[in-house]
Nucleic acid binder design. Structure first.
Length: 548
RNA sequence: GGGCCCGUAGCUCAAUCGGAUAGAGCAUCAGCCUUCUAAGCUGAGGGUUACGUGUUCGAUUCACGUCGGGCCUACCA
């Protein structure tokens, strides 16, 4: 409908400005739902942005434009000029009734779109190394990433969720050593546990498992790998379990090590050398980032012979391109902001279209406990694990909490509030609307209400009814724009509003009455609301309870 | 020093990539259940959108500056 209207508007404008380029002003041309209902169902600023070109005042030009519009009276009830020159449009009820029918007909597919055109898309998120349980901070990335993936799937993208990890390197060695020391401790040795080792209780648990299985027979074992491997296995297992509790599943776990094994790392360095983008200095290999817009050149291989993180990151991203992904999304925490410019520069240097890489940065989660900010570190083990959080408030609340805010904003997570007031969490407001509808439908069935195949929608004329339909009808618009902007929080907000419109309708009007026709129409409206809520919950990854 | 993000009601956050009267939740106060779920609804109070300048029909939004907070700024990942 919006597209249709846009074309009609552009046609009208072209009558006055023949060379008017819709694309050139598309950034300024807005057709949208006004904030206030009294300003209609759709509004456009076309008269204001183009008035200068025709040397007319906006209101007058708006009037002339309106006279050129050829609007279908079946769908448009009224057009009005308002304020400085807005043109406001009102839909007919008939339009809303048609949309209501569409919602019910499309059911669980209502809101699914094809704008992605099956484009091969990869989204990488979480990507925490297996050195400890996932923290609340990881949780934000996990939930955002999965929800964005869901949104893209609803838009018709072919999405692969991927988790990148590194099980080599210093941190992992430290992890293995930490387990070994705890193991020795448990087998009766006198151990001085260094402060910079992993302090968490989970290290002791892993050590205990080794004691249970092997007794003290590993004491003399010189193969330190046993401890590291065991730690990695157990921790990864836990991470996957935690993610599963949030209904997050990755299609691919990508091990950084494979990039060394298959020669990808070397080949990147060689290509850089060939293109004269790498050079040796002080025993290290440097990447000429400064030549590609970076601030300074960066080390890619240390003088010890070990690559820095940049090199495998570049190789990994090249691998993504080689696998044929056309849209590559990286969701990173704010602590990684500095890393991606080098990666992007590297890819560009290798001849890839860096515009296909979309880097999303989410800000940190600050944990507030007893009014104080808790500094978190995996090694110091003073973090709140994601698992503990799920234990406290449940998976639905965790998911909703992490998507209800823009990823640009720093998230303050007040633990006390989350625990003691979880019953007042906004997610219940949404779910309650769904459960309430389910209950009404159960009641209707128990009363023997027969649902008409062709409800008389035209009986829905009350403001609360029309407002609700108007809201429901826009669901696909939100699915599309939230995906286009990688911005799931607005969908959460939309659903919150939708629940509100339903609650208002419910309080004003009885659904099941003696009037069979009206009952049938209102049940249909309830069903449509339930469909939109359910589809929205699916995208957000929260459950749609039939009872609460 | 430089880069990124943020600053909006007592608190936590919105405001559909420049729109019309800046909105929700929590907290406070006052109302609404013998009828389909009161985890709900209705109403009240609460704001110089950190501050200043600029851009224009129009600024919470954009540009520049100041102040304040977070993160980054490794031959750590």
């Amino acid at each position: 409908m919006k597209e249709n209207l846009k074309n009609k508007i552009l046609d009208a404008v072209k009558f006055f400005i023949p060379d008017f380029n819709g694309d050139a002003v598309s950034s300024r041309l807005v057709i949208e739902k006004p904030r206030l209902a009294e300003h209609g169902d759709l509004t456009t600023n076309i008269a204001m942005i183009s008035a200068k070109q025709v040397r007319k005042n906006p209101r007058q030009f708006a009037q002339e434009l309106i006279e050129k519009f050829e609007l279908d009276p079946n769908y448009f009830a009224k057009v009005e000029i308002a304020g400085p020159g807005f043109i406001n449009f009102w839909f007919t009820n008939n339009y809303f009734y048609e949309r209501l029918g569409t919602i019910i007909k499309e059911n669980s597919n209502f809101g699914r779109l094809n704008v992605g055109d099956r484009k091969k898309t990869q989204i990488e998120f979480v990507s925490a190394n297996p050195t400890g349980p996932l923290t609340v901070g990881h949780g934000r990335g996990a939930v955002l990433g999965d929800t964005i993936a869901n949104l893209l799937e609803w838009n018709g993208y072919d999405v692969t969720r991927e988790y990148y990890f590194n099980n080599a390197g210093r941190q992992m060695r430290l992890l293995g050593d930490s387990v070994r020391l705890r193991y020795l401790e448990l087998t009766g040795e006198d151990v001085d546990f260094p402060v910079d080792f992993y302090q968490g209780e989970y290290i002791k648990d892993i050590a205990q498992h080794l004691v249970d299985e092997f007794g003290d027979s590993l004491k003399e074992n010189q193969d330190e790998n046993i401890f590291k491997q065991r730690a990695e296995d157990e921790i990864f297992d836990d991470i996957k379990k935690t993610l599963q509790r949030l209904k997050i599943e990755f299609e691919v776990f990508f091990n950084e090590k494979s990039l060394y094994d298959d020669g990808s790392i070397d080949s990147v360095v060689n290509e850089f050398r060939q293109k004269d983008l790498a050079y040796d200095k002080d025993g290290a290999v440097w990447f000429k980032a400064s030549q590609l817009g970076g601030e300074t050149d960066k080390v890619i291989i240390k003088s010890t012979g070990e690559p820095t993180y940049r090199l495998p990151d570049i190789a990994y991203h090249r691998n993504k391109f080689q696998r044929g992904f056309e849209l590559i999304i990286d969701l990173l925490g704010a602590d990684h902001v500095a890393t991606y410019p080098d990666v992007v520069a590297g890819l560009k240097a290798l001849g890839y279209d860096e515009r296909k890489v979309k880097v999303l940065i989410h800000q940190f989660v600050t944990i507030v406990q007893n009014g104080e900010i808790v500094k978190m570190s995996t090694r110091k083990a003073n973090f709140i694990t994601l698992d503990e959080l799920i234990d406290e408030v449940g998976a639905d609340v965790v998911r909703y909490f992490f998507i209800m805010r823009s990823m640009d904003s720093h998230l303050n997570f007040d633990l006390k509030l989350a625990k003691t007031q979880s019953d007042e969490n906004p997610v219940y407001y949404l779910q309650y609307a769904h459960a309430r509808i389910a209950s009404i439908i159960r009641y209707a069935e128990s009363e023997g209400v027969e649902l008409s195949q062709t409800p008389k929608f035209e009986l829905l004329t009350q403001p609360e009814e029309i407002n609700l339909i108007r809201q429901l009808e826009q669901f696909p618009d939100f699915v599309e724009s939230c995906a286009a902007n990688y911005d799931p929080h607005r969908l959460a907000e939309y659903l919150h509003e939708t629940a509100g419109f339903f609650h208002k309708f419910y309080h004003q009007h009885r659904v099941v009455t003696d009037d069979k026709q009206t009952t049938s129409a209102r049940i249909a409206l309830c069903l449509a609301t339930k469909i939109v809520l359910k589809n929205g919950f699916d995208i957000l990854g929260i459950t749609a309870p039939e009872k609460m």
